[in-house]
Design a protein around this nucleic acid. Structure first.
Length: 464
RNA sequence: GGCCCUAUCGUCUAGUUUGGUCUAGGACACCACGCUUUCAAUGUGGUAACACGGGUUCGAAUCCCGUUGGGGCCGCCA
């Protein structure tokens, strides 16, 4: 039975790196009809917060990465951890280290100046006095494990010293708790970020001391910021220019579709054998293969995310898109019917939903612009005014009920073809939007309606 | 500094396991052209990479060694 897990600590908002690790764990488990577990590593009492936990849960659900079974809270497993610690202590595999923080700091400082390995080889191993932290007795051996992505990886455990397992019997530390929980929940494959590669030998040492079976490992490459450093909270927000933020919630708020984010994250470090790049979660489950995961880190390119999001937005039906757009248009409280029209108007050009506010501003506010903008490539003000007035006459004859893209276009286009499309249509579009770039005039008029369209054109004619 | 990982277009990557079909393919971005009232969308085309140095071999992006570069870790955090 294939069993994977995502084991975030609730000490910060879920970020892109966690999300992609979760995705790979999910895909791998589902591909082999196994289970994907969620373990909340909340042993750090001071830094763990409910708010962060809820953020993680919410984002996993949002992305569609539903976990199997109950959530495992690491802290609740504390009695089991204690049993394991007592076992190791009893067998003489672990011991209490009573060195003070000052002593250890001094030792470390000395190692730094001597440029030797930073580690603690304790000389309290044989004194069985309780108190102080619990350390694992170093066995000084080579540790070799096979990483599914990287192949054989070797560490020399001597360089690790006597690693700390727990602050005390009731307070286990990360490596110990992770090894114990992975074993007890029968995790078959530990898939995690490369930043954990150097934790693996420690966890293997703990497994061996406890007589546990070793799971398979796969260390996925890290997601890098533009400067090629590990993506961290310091790297900007997607709202401030091209994406580069780290919290999944930021992407959600900025108006990215979960399926786009999943699609994009899957391609960060993984690629199918063929050239396809558009994938839904179900396709990914079918295609995903750990052996095809890249070894080197991948730079997060927000531009490509935008492009993938744009693709997925274009797949939505307008009514669906309208629902997504609604929260970003709250300032103007448009009707549902109006939002659907707006959705239709901008569907092809949206990279993310948050762009809609600015893109559609001209619909809700009277445009301000210089009268010169109305002139198409050297056209005279007189002629342009004349053209606008001709359009006005036509529009005024149309009734409000039949005022749509078809009726306005069929009335105006023959004239535009005769006069010159640019001379007719450019000023009309500017009159309606006040912008150099925008959707076409007939589509816009349908959204604005007869009265508003006529008003804006009158105003424009008045400027000339 | 030590240990570990890693190295194909600006970015994500195919190709590396089973050397020749690679004058290195795709996507994003960029540029040009077409369509078009503008922009977007779309279509066509283009610029752009095997880090370097040694081997092995008839032949290396692909195998080996070294160098250089990049990254991660080195907490009584996870």
């Amino acid at each position: 039975m294939i069993k994977t897990r995502i084991a975030p600590s609730p000490t910060g908002y879920m970020h892109i790196g966690n999300a992609r690790t979760a995705l790979f764990n999910y895909l791998f488990a589902k591909k082999y009809h196994g289970e994907f577990l969620l373990r909340i590593e909340n042993t750090d009492l001071e830094r763990s917060k409910k708010e962060y936990e809820l953020d993680i849960l919410g984002n996993l659900k949002w992305l569609g990465l539903n976990w199997d079974g109950e959530i495992i809270y690491q802290r609740e497993r504390s009695p089991v951890h204690r049993e394991y610690l007592e076992k190791l202590l009893g067998e003489g595999k672990a011991f209490y280290c009573r060195h003070s923080a000052e002593e250890l700091a001094g030792e470390q400082k000395e190692q730094q100046t001597n440029k030797t390995v930073l580690k603690h080889n304790c000389d309290h191993k044989d004194k069985s006095l309780a108190g102080g932290v619990i350390r694992l007795k170093n066995q000084n051996k080579k540790i070799v494990f096979n990483d599914i992505i990287r192949g054989e990886v070797t560490f020399d455990s001597e360089l690790l010293g006597d690693i700390v397992l727990a602050k005390n019997l009731n307070t286990p530390l990360y490596n110990f708790a992770a090894a114990a929980d992975d074993h007890d929940t029968e995790i078959s494959h530990v898939i995690r970020g490369e930043d954990h590669l150097s934790n693996t030998p420690k966890q293997i040492l703990i497994q061996e001391a406890l007589g546990f079976k070793r799971p398979d490992y796969a260390h996925v490459p890290l997601i890098l910021a533009k400067d090629r450093s590990k993506l961290s909270k310091r790297h900007g927000s997607p709202r401030l220019g091209v994406a580069g933020g780290t919290a999944v919630t930021e992407y959600k708020n900025a108006g990215y579709l979960p399926q786009a984010l999943v699609n994009f994250m899957a391609l960060l470090g993984w690629h199918p054998a063929d050239n396809r790049e558009i994938f839904g979660l179900e396709d990914l489950i079918k295609e995903f293969d750990l052996a095809r995961v890249q070894k080197a880190g991948a730079v997060f390119d927000g531009t490509k995310l935008d492009s993938i999001n744009n693709y997925h937005i274009k797949q939505l039906v307008p009514a669906e898109l309208a629902q997504y757009l609604k929260p970003y248009l709250n300032d103007h409280s448009p009707s549902d019917e109006q939002i659907i029209k707006i959705a239709h108007l901008f569907q092809d050009r949206l990279n993310k939903f948050s762009e809609i506010a600015q893109l559609s501003a001209f619909i809700f506010n009277q445009p301000e612009y210089d009268s010169k903008m109305l002139l198409w490539k050297g056209a005279s003000p007189e002629k342009t005014k004349n053209n606008l007035e001709t359009i006005l006459m036509i529009l005024e004859k149309l009734s409000g009920d039949s005022f749509d893209i078809d009726s306005t276009a069929t009335e105006i286009m023959p004239l535009a073809n005769k006069t010159g499309r640019g001379e007719m249509l450019w000023p009309l579009r500017v009159a309606l939007t006040g912008l150099e770039k925008s959707p076409g005039p007939f589509e816009i008029m349908e959204v604005l309606g007869r009265e508003e369209s006529i008003n804006r054109i009158k105003k424009a004619a008045g400027k000339l």
